[in-house]
Amino acid sequence: MRSIAQINEKIQAQTATVLTVTELKARVRQVGIHQTAQEVDVITTGTFEPMESSGAILNLGQTDPPIKIRQCWLDQVPAYAGFGAVDLYIGASQMPDYPGAAEGGDHELSRERGGGHVIADLIAGRNVKLRAIGQGTDCYPRVTLETTISKATINQFYLFNPRNLYQNFIVGTNAGDRPLYTYLGMLQPHLGNAVYANPGALSPLLNDPELNVIGVGTRILLGGAPGYITWEGTQHFPLQKRLPNQTPIGPAATVALIGDAKQMDPKWVRGCYFKGYGASIMLGVAVPLAVLNERVVEQAAVEDTDLVAPIVDFSIPRRVRPTFGLVSYAQLKSGKLVIDGKVVRVAPLASLYRSQAMAQTLQQQIQAGTFLLSEAVAPLPNDRLFLPQDIRGGQAD
């Protein structure tokens, strides 16, 4: 029906018709897929959820005399320094490094502050304390460095996230006798609650389940700033079992993302902490779907009633945990479900309100002509297996 170039011409002329994915689904219910595809140029999707497989790359610039950093801490959170003299990578889930940290000892910095908080502070323009130890060579004689940095005092500062935007995920429950502290938050014993992480029908990759539109090079909003899909994400598993509508029944495709953190909006980047588990980061991500043909609209019209996720029992500490079957996202979003005859309260880990707002933010930028779409330079692979890690040459617990 149309090409990316044709859509971009309309965006530049501010004549493109752009609907959020929620508006798109409503329009399909009113007039059907064919007419909607004739009317709409771009669909915007969004999510705001914890994405712990995220991190930031920083270049500090050289000191005088120069230093070759080999150990570094940002607000006492370790950063990796093994790929350049003053290049650093700080992971969102990295926790503070100080005596007694592993045992939960007291310290002037909160035990609930990790890499995600440091990244969010830098994006918000706050100062962060830096302490570094250098190797000491003829060309890099300095061996220690203590200073304060901000995004205004460093060179490159960008997020590079190995795994974001899970195409579906799980529902966490706990049939055991004690509370469990997990990456989904606290799961109360005896099926006291259930938590789901994916925003369902709002989710970017669930609205392009076969990855026909989204690919390597797709331009996105990451933290409110322009970014790109750079590669398949870690644990990318497109061979997950699927329903007839091609949506997966559990964790499936993922993507790696990159974006300029200096341009990001603190509203869309928040450090967070899960009690008994650790630090993470809440990120807002919006992905446009170019309406190149009717198939794009057909797949993006999927409703929460047509999407399912597995209910997993975290009380069994194994790689493959038992499940209580599949549940629709419509049921999850109702706030309760029934497991083994018991009514269980349900809550989302993602913010459904902010996921909608993220899609609206991208919609507004496209309508204003300030955000153009990009052609994918390569498709995301559709044949990746998910390989477990077994103990070789050692002894398993």
Rank of each mutant, 00 (worst) to 15 (best):
Y228R: 06
I229Y: 04
T230Q: 10
T234S: 12
P238C: 08
L239W: 10
Q240C: 14
R242C: 12
R242E: 08
L243G: 11
N245I: 10
N245L: 12
P248K: 09
I249H: 08
G250D: 14
T254D: 13
V255L: 12
A256H: 13
I258K: 10
Q263S: 04
D265P: 01
D265F: 07
K267W: 08
W268Y: 04
V269G: 00
V269H: 03
R270V: 03
G271I: 05
Y273M: 05
F274T: 07
F274R: 06
G276H: 05
Y277N: 09
Y277V: 08
G278H: 02
S280N: 07
I281S: 03
I281E: 07
M282A: 05
G284E: 06
V285D: 09
A286D: 04
A286R: 03
L289G: 12
A290M: 08
A290F: 08
V291A: 12
E294C: 05
R295D: 14
R295H: 12
V297R: 13
V297E: 10
E298M: 11
A301N: 09
T305Y: 14
L307C: 13
P310G: 15
V312N: 15
D313S: 11
D313E: 10
F314W: 13
S315V: 04
R318Q: 14
R318V: 09
V327G: 06
S328C: 06
S328K: 12
Y329V: 05
Y329Q: 02
K333N: 03
K333C: 03
G335I: 01
G335H: 00
L337I: 10
V338Y: 00
V338E: 06
V344R: 00
V344P: 00
V346Y: 00
V346S: 01
P348E: 01
P348Y: 01
L349K: 00
S351N: 00
L352E: 00
Y353C: 02
